[in-house]
Amino acid sequence: MSRPVRSAAILLVALAGSAAAQQRFTVGVQGVYADYRETSASLKFTGGGVGASFGFALHKFGADVSFASIKLTPVDSTATSGQDFTAKVFDANVRWRVLGQVSGEIGVTSRKMDPEFAAQGFGAVRLGGRGVVNLGPGADLTVRAHYLAGAKFSGGGTASFPIDLGLAFSLGRADGRLRVTGDYEFQSINRKTSVKAPVQQALMRVGASLGF
């Protein structure tokens, strides 16, 4: 092994060792409840499902991925256009802590419906930020807000200023190894086709996470 390669290997091992001491992984499972509405008050769906999440943090860097499968049913069973469907929600974000506990964040969100045209499928790029409030040893609050850039709908159309808001809490061991988690996400999308066709989703995830 040449000297530069050996030096690089030593440096990598040293960096990996240093990073391993500070990195943190979290894995969570959740029960999910959703309230989904689109176009008009008559197209309102609620339902539940399961979700999973995976998070990673190292120094100022953080990332998370979450997935949920929710079976939604129309609230008004008399609505002619309403039918049961399953929404598969996928989110992925990366963030960088810029000031104190405030991070700038970028990510993607995607919601696919099954059957495909039972409701609007949706995809967008998230641009926003989040702040973490430490309530005490073993309890945190997270607030977040994103602009949903480049929104795409399975039925076409555009959105003028789609945004989502979020609030999450976690409560458990101070070392973060086991926490009860709750997460609320609200999306408000002023979709327009030839007419107004707004989409709105409120999503609640309650579950537990393991940190290591």
């Binding site: 409840y33 008050a41 309102k44 609050l141 808001l165 809490f169 409560l171 408000s188 002023n190």
Partner: peptide, 28 residues
């Protein structure tokens, strides 16, 4: 932010998670 065209309500999840946050704050 909710759209009035889509009817009222829909704050249940927000209330539930906020309640969880309040409990956390109370305990702390």
């Amino acid at each position: 932010l909710r759209n009035n065209d889509l009817g009222s309500g829909g704050t249940g999840p927000a209330l539930a998670v906020s309640a969880g946050a309040l409990i956390s704050g109370f305990l702390m």
